[in-house]
Simulated assay, not measured.
Amino acid sequence: MDMKKYNVAILGATGAVGQEFLNLIEERNFPFANLKMLASKRSAGKKIQFMGKEYTVEETTDDSFKDVEIALFAGGAASKQFAPAAVKAGAVVIDNSSAFRMDPEVPLVVPEVNPQAIARHKGIIANPNCSTIIMMMALKPLYDLSKIKRIVVSTYQAVSGGGKEAMAELEQQVDDIVAGREPQANILPGAKFPKHYQIAFNLIPQIDVFYDNLYTKEEMKMVNETKKILEDDSLRITATTVRVPVYRSHAESVNVEFEDEVSVEAARKAIDAFPGAIVRDNPAEQIYPMPLFTSGKNDVEVGRIRKDESIEHGLNFWVCGDQIRKGAALNALQIAEYMIEHDMI
């Protein structure tokens, strides 16, 4: 019997996440019947070649979602504007922006971690923040071994998280420095901010706006989203998020305090058995995860797993994952695949 195929729309088809949606739809043989490419007025009319067919990018309007069953939103301000119209037209929206993540009516889902939340959706399902997803892939198997009391996470986030312009600026700055020219900074920590800093050969300890508590929005996303996904408000979490001069794939240093003893060996075994996570951890052979080797990969890699000798029940680990794949497009597509597999669309 032929598998049912679905009418799919991609909002933000011309951006980095939108393009990754297309790569993954082809790679994973996602069952689409019709594909609608949507973007802003600025990108409307562009042509996209995909699987032997030419598609014309359409400007997104409230009427764009007629007959659409699955709407993959790449993120940005358009989500808040168009998600209600897509739901009203009968589509399930899987949204990569932060617009709905903390809405109690909207499930926040990492399919390997909390697929049961999908059933509670009312038309919109939120993709967590990229850094949260990557951390979750290592945390959940540990959380299943012992309740976690406290998490301290520091991130090393690639410039692609800041968009195509940030990637281009890193490349230009490196070229300028190598050629002896003065590098220009116009993008990071974000085009909307009054002050910008060189990212080449530098680190910027600001991702998004600062809140009154002196944490950034990105840091508080990790705190609040982790609690929501694990449905555990008792978790104590603190985060520091940093932009680093790497093109693609985020890295994170995570310290976890458990209620009970969790050995290094038990942690390695649990993480390695978890779908979508790979232990790459052999200090004697200098084997550990790095952005260089996780870029373009679907799996998240975990290494440097070791006892925290400063507390009774603690572990440290290092995790790397491609934030455009598992941290964005892949996670959203896996939600759609789960819904198809369980006859939820």
Rank of each mutant, 00 (worst) to 15 (best):
T216A: 04
S263A: 06
D176K: 12
V8C: 12
S40F: 06
K326L: 05
D176R: 12
S154E: 15
I311Y: 01
E59S: 13
M290V: 15
A74R: 02
K269Y: 02
Q323Y: 00
V57W: 01
R150Y: 11
K122E: 14
N202R: 09
F293T: 15
I207K: 14
V319T: 14
T226Y: 05
T61Q: 14
F193V: 03
A74I: 05
H196W: 10
L22D: 05
K195S: 11
V244G: 10
I229V: 13
V244Y: 11
D308I: 07
K53Q: 15
K192Y: 10
I311C: 01
L230R: 04
S64Q: 08
P289N: 13
A44Q: 02
D2K: 07
Q81A: 09
K149N: 15
R181E: 13
E218S: 15
D144R: 03
I94E: 03
T226H: 06
K80R: 14
P84S: 14
E265L: 07
R306H: 10
E58P: 10
D232I: 09
P245I: 14
Y55H: 02
V256A: 07
E259F: 07
E309H: 12
L72D: 00
D212G: 03
N23F: 04
V17C: 04
D308W: 06
K164S: 15
L170R: 05
G296V: 05
G180M: 06
K36G: 02
G303D: 09
K192F: 12
R181A: 14
F258C: 03
A86L: 02
P84H: 13
T238S: 13
A99K: 00
A86P: 14
V8I: 15
R280H: 13
E59W: 04
K149V: 13
A83V: 04
T294G: 10
N96K: 05
I199Y: 04
D95T: 09
K195F: 07
L145K: 01
N282H: 10
E20F: 09
T240N: 14
I207H: 11
T294A: 08
I207G: 10
K66E: 11
I148W: 08
T155H: 04
V159T: 13
V153P: 12
V8E: 08
V209A: 15
Q49L: 06
Q184P: 00
Q19R: 10
V264P: 06
Q206F: 07
Q81M: 09
N29D: 12
G161H: 08
E165N: 11
I305S: 05
Y247P: 10
A336E: 01
E219R: 01
E337L: 09
E219P: 08
P31E: 02
T155D: 05
E312W: 03
A270M: 08
D103F: 04
